[in-house]
Structure formats: structure tokens, C-alpha cells
């Protein structure tokens, strides 16, 4: 019988084949949801879907696009905002 914390399905279940050809059940942490644009809700490209512990091992430039609003807005929405800022000056 699994432990209480493992019955709640907060961790995902993975069947792993061992060297002795047994299949055993492993429990792994679930990944967070995909990053989405703050205005249009589109899934962001160039933003890895990893747990915070793994993200800290990735360089900062690998975690989000290197442009203003990178990792917060999609490229189309950020372009609209940058043009609006430039023309308001």
C-alpha cells in the first residue's frame, strides 16, 4: 500500500523497467503548466516547462527570450506595445 502522500496523485506515476526485467512504479514531481502570453493567452515559445529547481540550473538567457517583455508576452503582443510606446513619444 503506498504512503498517504503518494495516494493523492500530486506526484505523477511512471512505470520503469529495471535491469532484471521487472516493471516498478516510480513517483515523479509533476511539471508546471505551460507559460502563456499575458494579453492573448498564447503558449510562449522559448520558455522551458520545468520545475523551479531545474530552472535555476539553466542560464537566465535560456529561461526566456532576450527582448523586452520576454517570457511575459508573445512576440506579436510585445511588438504592438513597443510600437505604441515609440509613437506616443
Amino acid at each position: 500500500m503506498p504512503e498517504g502522500k503518494r495516494k493523492s496523485r500530486s506526484q505523477r506515476r511512471v512505470y520503469v523497467r529495471t535491469p532484471s526485467s521487472k516493471s516498478v512504479l516510480h513517483y515523479r514531481a509533476r511539471k508546471p503548466s505551460k507559460a502563456v502570453c499575458g494579453t492573448c493567452g498564447a503558449v510562449l515559445k522559448g520558455v522551458p516547462r520545468e520545475t523551479p529547481a531545474k530552472l535555476s540550473k539553466i542560464p537566465k538567457s535560456g529561461r526566456r527570450p532576450e527582448r523586452p517583455f520576454g517570457g511575459k508576452l508573445c512576440s506579436a503582443c510585445s511588438r504592438k506595445i513597443i510600437v505604441a510606446i515609440a509613437r506616443s513619444e
Binding site: 527570450p65 532576450e66 527582448r67 523586452p68 512576440s75 510585445s78 511588438r79 513597443i82 510600437v83 510606446i85 515609440a86
Partner: peptide
């Protein structure tokens, strides 16, 4: 002009 794409966008 103002660059609106890439890492120099907004400059």
C-alpha cells in the same frame, strides 16, 4: 527608426 523585434527592440 525604432527596432521592434529581437533583443534590441525598443531602442
Amino acid at each position: 527608426a525604432v527596432k521592434i523585434a529581437g533583443r534590441d527592440s525598443g531602442r
